[in-house]
Write a protein that binds this DNA or RNA. Structure first.
Lengths: 343, 343
DNA sequence: GTGAAAGCGCTAACAT
DNA sequence: ATGTTAGCGCTTTCAC
């Protein structure tokens, strides 16, 4: 049984391949009568155009791509990614555009992946996990593969960009902790070459005026634990720790408890990303929700526009909202208690 | 600037396109000298073969696909999916095979998506969220699109399948609760037309010998809450509830508490899927971990084998392990307390 | 061991 | 408004 092609449909409808093609694309006027006949034939034969043939002929893959250079294990415990993808899909689905997900082990493979994408696999790509001076930015520019940056990239580029203000929530949390009487506030960041980690860390440093209590983690539970141990071992230890994600915050919280500290009495803790279970922990975890789905939607729309030839533009999606919960001792309307930090 | 093609490489190396093609594929003997020259030219020109041209010529897309008919919002809160995808990617990455993710709103779109996949977009597909008598099984068989079923499908098929024993952990939990003195044990299931929900529910019914306390949820927090309320309003209410995922369990737990019940004293609770934060909740949540990554790896391997022409086979990946935690009042080695349930 | 040429199934000029 | 035809960039017979 050989696959049915556009030629079969043309024969069935008594027209030529060109007519079939145009009847479907609407790229040239067709008598409604002919169109009906063609559509009927398409229906009858259950024909779906070959994606590869179409891609070859039009140089359009009808697919967008995300390449991740992360360890597969890390993807599994990240609460940002699935929601982001869900957002992307919600704008792609109506267009019948596919999303290609490719995980690569190293830079060489990543370059090959982007080259392959630009050679017919995809029409554009979304760049996540941006780093300062990210090599992918000039690289993709040279490949002239339509690209949208997701994150507050700190250099000028010719690409569209979906930004978020990561500094504001950090300032807000620090201010609140200050008002609650905390004087030694620490920060466990993500890797500082990630632009979002860096933005948060810089906002922290600016707010507290010192790098003394800044520690660079890697978003893993293990680093959350280790760095918390390090901070708590200080002769003059912090009374509050801001973590750059919930996973590290929870690991830190567990460690602190294991040392006999009570949260938030002896140590206030806040996270980032607001995992959907964070509001159910005990104590409930103060965190920052950032609507990754909205960023996914914005990024997908910008990329589609870019592919259609629109000018690159930067969109600021600011859905960051701080949820003060029990882990900072401060529920919504709690009156700040002065000087409750431990020695 | 026109894209570089195989013809450019051939010219650069002083050979024909055919030789370039074979030098890379190894599909026919090439003098090592010529090969070197070709490879050098490829390197020099940074040439990557066009995926679409290759796909058209070989009818191989070098891509696998997952089509989801879920609401995008649901994807975001599911702890199974990201880990599963991570597993799939870990076997695909070395092969430079792409994973296509497509979310569809309804059945018509889903059929179109599968047709498009089988017409050049992908070489095979992984079927998730299996339902009893799933229409996709015969449909994909007719499309003759290589497929691997993920879940304990209850009909014979010509497809490979990655199974898990969902009944065993349910039996284990019920047995433990019984031993702890619980006599009225309820179950909040997922939609019963999903094969895994059904398997769990059936194991539950068999273990407790009655459907009286079985309620059908939809895996959402909202249904967890509603059905818990319903069960607790019973004149003779359950002293333990098994939920078919952690999200519903946590919603149920919150509701029970809001009614003044203490967990696990007044109500024992267990979940399913073991979200990475479940061990950090308070009380820590009894749940069943199932290593979705391992299932992703197995499914990807089976699909690749299938595409290469191997016989379909069923693989049982049994990594289900029950983690008894505080929410069932039963830490690992706790001695069963008889009759501590509330009236 | 290598070259020449015929497709793969579409789309898009170019005709009429 | 529709038909004819030439590619898109590969792979793969078929010759030599």
């Amino acid at each position: 049984m050989t696959r049915t092609t556009i030629a079969d449909v043309a024969r069935e409808a008594g027209v030529t391949k060109a007519t079939v093609s145009h009847a479907l694309s609407g790229n040239r006027p067709i008598s409604s009568e002919t169109r009906d006949r063609v559509l009927a034939a398409v229906e009858r034969l259950n024909w779906v155009p070959s994606q590869s043939a179409r891609a070859l002929a039009t140089s359009r893959a009808n697919a967008l791509a995300v390449v991740l250079a992360r360890d597969p294990e890390v993807i599994a415990n990240d609460s940002f990614f699935p929601a982001f993808i869900a957002g992307v899909e919600s704008v792609l689905a109506p267009t019948e555009t596919a999303l290609i997900l490719q995980v690569v082990p190293d830079r060489a493979a990543e370059e090959r992946a982007y080259r392959a994408l630009s050679r017919g696999r995809a029409d554009g790509t979304l760049l996540l996990d941006l780093r300062t001076e990210d090599w992918r930015v000039p690289f993709l520019a040279e490949l002239s593969l339509p690209t949208v940056l997701v994150g507050a990239y700190d250099q000028p580029t010719g690409f569209s960009c979906v930004r978020t203000d990561d500094a504001a929530p950090v300032r807000e949390i620090v201010a609140k902790l200050r008002a609650d009487g905390h004087e030694r506030i620490a920060h466990v960041s993500g890797p500082l070459d990630y632009v979002h980690s860096k933005a948060r860390a810089e906002a922290y440093v600016e707010a507290v005026g010192s790098v003394e209590l800044l520690r660079e983690g890697d978003f893993s539970a293990a680093s959350g634990r280790t760095l918390t141990a390090e901070l708590l071992a200080l002769s003059s230890r912090p009374s509050a720790i801001l973590y750059s994600n919930d996973t590290m915050a929870i690991a830190g919280l567990s460690y602190a408890r294991s040392q006999g500290l009570s949260i938030p009495r002896d140590l206030a803790i806040s996270g980032f990303d607001d995992d959907h279970l964070s509001a159910h922990l005990s104590p409930t975890l103060t965190s920052v929700s950032s609507d990754p789905a909205a960023r996914g939607r914005a990024a997908a729309r910008l990329l589609q526009a870019d592919i259609l030839g629109a000018e690159p533009r930067t969109e600021i999606v600011d859905c960051n909202v701080v949820h003060f919960r029990e882990s900072t001792g401060s529920t919504a309307s709690a009156t700040p208690t002065v000087s409750r930090r431990t020695p």
